[in-house]
Design a protein around this nucleic acid. Structure first.
Ligand SMILES: NC(=O)c1ccc[n+]([C@@H]2O[C@H](COP(=O)([O-])OP(=O)(O)OC[C@H]3O[C@@H](n4cnc5c(N)ncnc54)[C@H](O)[C@@H]3O)[C@@H](O)[C@H]2O)c1
Ligand SMILES: NC(=O)c1ccc[n+]([C@@H]2O[C@H](COP(=O)([O-])OP(=O)(O)OC[C@H]3O[C@@H](n4cnc5c(N)ncnc54)[C@H](O)[C@@H]3O)[C@@H](O)[C@H]2O)c1
Lengths: 241, 241
DNA sequence: ATGACTTTGTGAAGGCTTGCACAAAGTCGA
DNA sequence: TCGACTTTGTGCAAGCCTTCACAAAGTCAT
């Protein structure tokens, strides 16, 4: 993401005053466009047409153009979009010209996998703290950071903007409450279940079971639609559960 | 999920013929309702009103009722919904009365975390195979399963319905192609990037960076709206990236 | 049985999102 | 300079999703 810094200055003037009015659906797709642009930059491609970029991102070109129009982005008619400039504009709109400090709470299997994941830094985020409440885990070092308790973080930790919850589900609400008390207003929750938070706090939930169940619904539909052919899931025989 | 088996028989007659017409947005919320119902069952609660269940799931009660109306669910006016019966109906609609066989491809940090995650079995899914292409990993045992290559799975592995991709992004498309060639038509992709697959194949992508970037957008909006007060993200000073 | 009360199920309205069609605005070769 | 061609940006229409309002259908105390 460092390659975005260079062009940022030129971009600020154009779009900083254009505050409001980006539809939520568009916001959800901007990261996809940014994701598609990065390899283009790496390949040295400097210009791309909406048709092509849309294919890379998995959307229709008309939707891409409509989305970009909301952030006042100017491509060049007859030519396309400047890859670096477009990426810089999207990054600016998403607030990725600064690095957001992140805390991960719950250093279990998933929490450790996330902590050792390289995809944070360089994409607008930096893990600045790790937390757990298991005395056996607190104090250990993971990826160069010492695991502490949430309570300690609240009194003596670095400022954090985003909290990632990877504790078991029964602990998630209490953890969320503590994060909110610390001033965190953006939470990414991997524990299954709904979190109740004040209005000004933004929660996004990622639930593996939910995703698989949506896939299962469509899979079942396909099998029911053509009941004769092919593969059938493992039969529902007497199992442990 | 075993507690759903008992009532299944009674439910089948009602809804099995009602094939079509569940809106996609509703399908996406059915897992949330199911997730909210499970603890209610565990607490011995046998009946619940839409208002209450909606609060647990994080949606409006009118939306819950509209959603349920699409699968022909009958609550009792003046009373509410039977917890076990409703859960069984939703599970049936989602195809969770059978166990879907799952393969995880890419036994790195994330793949191993998923493999050792208990939330699969008992929720309608079972991991039946693990794959990787690193000779140092192939042949090792993870959670009772021996890691094999995708090629070996294709010729001599168990039937799988759902593939989970946890390889690095550059390998994801090739892995998806192999899964499709094996007959897999449902893919959950954790690698960032768009997968191109035939029409009949269903892909859902989970991208950590995307989720964080959406949070960052709203976080930035809040900070811009009240530019005077409080916390500011870590300043954009000269960093490695 | 009756009436007061509760809660579901749904038609209709409103809002958001997508996709179409096309004018606007540029490039490029001659 | 001109005309053919390419590609963007957008008004508008269609479709999907959510929310409102309320009738329908039940419970429960008397
Ligand atoms: N492991 C996966 O692949 C996976 C996948 C999807 C979802 N999840 C969900 O993510 C969460 C974590 O999964 P996991 O497999 O890493 O679990 P885990 O048991 O390995 O780790 C949980 C960690 O949270 C810590 N913890 C518990 N209560 C806490 C509290 N109040 N404050 C701080 N830390 C606390 C525990 O000490 C432990 O280290 C679970 O909710 C799980 O459902 C996990
Ligand atoms: N680790 C995380 O917390 C995290 C979070 C979000 C997304 N992701 C994404 O998930 C993916 C995996 O992340 P990770 O941290 O586990 O990476 P990792 O490097 O630890 O593991 C990747 C594994 O995939 C295997 N692999 C590579 N090519 C393969 C192929 N063609 N066929 C089969 N196996 C192959 C490798 O041998 C390795 O074991 C990445 O795309 C990453 O962007 C990871």
């Amino acid at each position: 993401m460092s390659w975005l810094r260079g062009v940022r200055a030129e971009v600020v003037h154009e779009s900083v005053r254009r505050t409001g009015g980006v539809p939520e659906a568009t916001v959800g797709r901007l990261p996809l466009y940014l994701r598609a642009l990065t390899p283009l930059h790496d390949q040295g491609i400097t210009n791309i047409a909406s048709e092509e970029l849309a294919a890379l991102a998995g959307v229709r070109s008309t939707q891409l153009r409509k989305d970009l129009s909301h952030l006042g982005s100017y491509g060049v008619r007859g030519v396309g979009y400047d890859v670096d400039l477009l990426a810089a504009q999207i990054a600016q709109e998403l607030g990725l010209t600064q690095e957001w400090p992140v805390v991960i709470v719950g250093m279990g299997n998933l929490g450790r996998a996330l902590a050792s994941y390289g995809g944070f830094s360089g994409r607008g985020f930096r893990i600045v703290a790790l937390a757990d409440d298991d005395p056996a885990v607190v104090g250990t070092r993971v990826e160069g950071l010492t695991v502490s308790t949430l309570a300690d973080l609240a009194t003596a930790g670095p400022t954090v903007a985003i909290g990632v919850i990877t504790t078991p589900a029964p602990a998630a609400q209490a953890v969320a409450d503590q994060l909110v008390a610390m001033g965190v207003r953006s939470i990414l929750n991997f524990a299954p279940g709904h979190l109740t938070v004040p209005d000004e706090v933004d929660v996004r939930g990622v639930d593996l079971a939910t995703e698989l169940q949506i896939l299962a619904f469509h899979e079942q539909r396909r099998l029911l639609a053509v009941p004769t052919s092919g593969q059938v899931p493992s039969e529902d025989r007497e199992v442990a559960g």
